[in-house]
């Protein structure tokens, strides 16, 4: 049952990442990987809120597997993020590569942390 919850979340999360990435790219023409950047930040905020709800006892562990491990886990990606950073650096866009790393990490870590504490306060 737990495996099915993770798979059900991932079956939605992975294509949602692909579609969001496409939709974001269609709205700008820069080489900066805004699509992956936006998807990772959104997944981090969502996982933070869910973690807060779990810690406050307002969400079940099954919900955690479906939305956290499955959906948010597959929605966000480290492989695409790191490959894009490598490509930017290889094409001489060193500043964009560095900015992608610093901004993605700071925003991701901040979003989860903020989301966790906001949800914990709300559901407490």
């Amino acid at each position: 049952m737990n495996w099915l919850l993770v798979i059900a979340g991932a079956v939605v999360g992975a294509p949602l990442r692909y579609l969001t990435d496409r939709a974001v790219q269609a709205r700008h023409d820069s080489l900066f990987p805004w699509g992956t950047f936006v998807v990772n930040a959104a997944a981090c905020l969502a996982l933070g809120l869910l973690t807060g709800a779990l810690l406050a006892g307002a969400a079940s562990s099954r919900l955690g597997l479906l939305f956290g491990t499955g959906l948010c886990g597959a929605l966000s990606t480290y492989s695409t993020f790191s490959y894009e950073t490598l490509r930017l650096a290889e094409r001489g866009r060193k500043f964009q590569a560095a900015a992608n790393v610093v901004a993605s990490v700071l925003l991701g870590l901040g979003s989860v942390h903020l989301g966790t504490h906001v949800a914990r306060a709300l559901f407490a």
Binding site: A74, T77, G108
Partner: peptide
Amino acid sequence: LGGFTTFSTYAA
């Protein structure tokens, strides 16, 4: 690979 790796769990 996108489903295997995760940025959200890393941040969490």
